[in-house]
Design a protein around this nucleic acid. Structure first.
Lengths: 331, 331
DNA sequence: TTGTAGGCGTTATCAC
DNA sequence: GTGATAACGCCTACAA
């Protein structure tokens, strides 16, 4: 009676079978190029399939024989050049294992993390993410989904983690500035909400040299070129005596360049700059950007290894990604 | 008897049910937070699930209630800054429709395209790709999978396409150079194999101004900074008289910058440069790069719209992405 | 509140 | 060569 439903029901093997006048099993044989089938029948079936615009259900197939492992990757901003390298590292490592990679991005809206995790949980076998939400929030969202957290310290023992050796990097940056005679050093930091915190490391490094850090020597902003730009303008207004800045990342350092040009501040003569990330584009600008380099491809590869551990039931690991200072022209 | 199989069979609802001493149905209720279940039973079930490390099968779930549409995206190089913007556009547009995005990259090995398509066919409902393989190859690999091809002309009527208005862009670039008095204009092109071809457009534009194009005025290379670098060195050696170059993309233009610095060639005084793509980093270098801009985010968004058309059974569309010349300091 | 029966679309196994 | 029949793991009825 009610054959004509409103929601266009999916075309199945049986539909094709009916049209071709064979059993659904024969259709399966034809579709999958099994032998043991009359070439003529085969043709008829394939024609019917084409006519109905038949596409096999990946779910049904996956049910019968579990397909490739699918890895979910969550980043916070695909347009921050930091992430493409990380993504490349993950893709390559995943590929070596024959895994698929599902990518999503919060586009800098951290509040969306739990939602993205939940969505990926339905699609992926394991998730790697540059996540800023607190462990408890992530645990609730993950619901048993194996999770590898990138770029920050993690307490939850169930999570894998690849942390960055921020302390060492920041210390090297500050030591370098001090060795060049700087004493009034400012920081362009991320805005106060969330994100891995490089500020304590900055304080510690400065203290190590007996240098004070006044509150107004730190200026925050979004993790973008624009964020760095406005943060530097603000810093400069508050503390014109500062002769060097350490920025949260290279993108913000570029913002400092832009602001500096506008303000007539010369780099490095009037103000030295050190970034963090070591992006390739640091080499392209003038003067080339001195930066704390971290190997993002490697980070991705390590994360995939961690993911594999979790999937095989081994206890979660804590990897530490080393960093190193690359001295170029800006400091 | 043979309960202990070698391949660690998947943990299912029934396993949890057995351990918790309930029916598999009750487990389902507990897992999915349905009402109508004794809190105590619920807890017992959840504990059992945790103990067994149970994770629901996404395939079985998908079978019962078809989940989100999954879009596959194939790019050729995640580290070419062109793609992150495109990816962002696709992700955003897909998200608006509640779709998932699966990403893979050929990493500049074009020969891998068919393989990637086939793999995605098993995971995605529709695929968008920056694909250079000929239509016939793609058709064979796609096997009915809806496909949207980006950045080049397409003949296959079944494919959706978002083409770039290369002709207009190249013509604008050449016209600009001519208006600045250049007559000996060279081109840094992609290597001879595959990839969308801007060479015919270059020839046509030059001819439009009555300018000759000798073979040695075109130098090819890989679509990277390095490729542009070596190509320019070669071009410069063969044709020192050339006063302006048009490059296949901005990345290669950066290579020209690098080579020029090494060779002591000043930009734009000794040689003007115009790129293609209009990447943000063109603004960051010195002199800022004049380039043919195309809106990659928009390209991604349009592609998703095309994908939606294909999925709903409408005939494939052919969108044309407009471009425009952005004049900055390099030409 | 809980359990039983049926079906989602596909493939594998076995008869015919 | 071809067609029933039984899984695969889950969920939505409905019955107990």
């Amino acid at each position: 009676m009610s054959e004509q439903q409103q929601p266009p029901r999916r075309v199945t093997l049986k539909d094709v079978a009916k049209l071709a006048g064979v059993s659904h099993q024969t259709v399966s044989r034809a579709i999958n190029d099994k032998g043991e089938i009359d070439p003529e029948t085969r043709r008829r079936v394939l024609d019917a399939a084409r006519e109905l615009n038949y596409r096999p259900s990946r779910f049904a197939r996956g049910l019968v024989s579990p397909g490739a492992t699918t890895l979910g990757l969550i980043v916070s901003d695909v347009e921050n050049p930091f992430f493409p390298e990380l993504i490349a590292g993950v893709i390559e490592a995943a590929e070596e294992r024959g895994w698929q990679v599902l990518i999503s991005s919060t586009q800098n809206r951290d509040a969306r993390e739990p939602e993205l995790i939940r969505t990926l949980a339905a699609q992926a076998d394991v998730v790697i993410g540059y996540l800023s939400a607190p462990d408890a929030t992530l645990t609730a969202a993950a619901e048993g989904l194996p999770l590898v957290v990138l770029g920050r310290a993690v307490d939850e023992p169930a999570f894998g983690a690849v942390e960055v050796d921020t302390d060492v990097g920041v210390r090297a940056a500050i030591a370098h500035l001090v060795s060049r005679g700087h004493r009034a050093i400012g920081m362009i930091d991320c805005a106060d909400d969330g994100t891995p915190d490089r500020r304590p490391a900055f304080h510690a490094a400065m203290a190590g040299h007996g240098l004070p850090v006044a509150d107004d020597a730190i200026s925050g902003g979004t993790l973008t070129v624009e964020g760095g730009e406005t943060a530097f303008v603000r810093l400069r207004a508050a503390r014109p005596d500062i002769t060097a800045v350490f920025t949260f990342n290279d993108l913000m350092a570029l913002g400092v360049y832009r602001a500096a040009r506008r303000l007539g501040v010369r780099i490095p003569e009037d103000c030295a700059v050190i970034g963090f990330d070591g992006l390739p584009l640091g080499e392209l600008i003038d003067p080339p950007l001195t930066s704390v380099y971290l190997d993002k491809r490697r980070m991705g590869a390590i994360a995939v290894t961690e993911a594999a551990r979790l999937l095989s039931g081994e206890p979660a690991g804590r990897a530490l990604l080393p960093v190193r200072l690359i001295v170029r022209g800006s400091a």
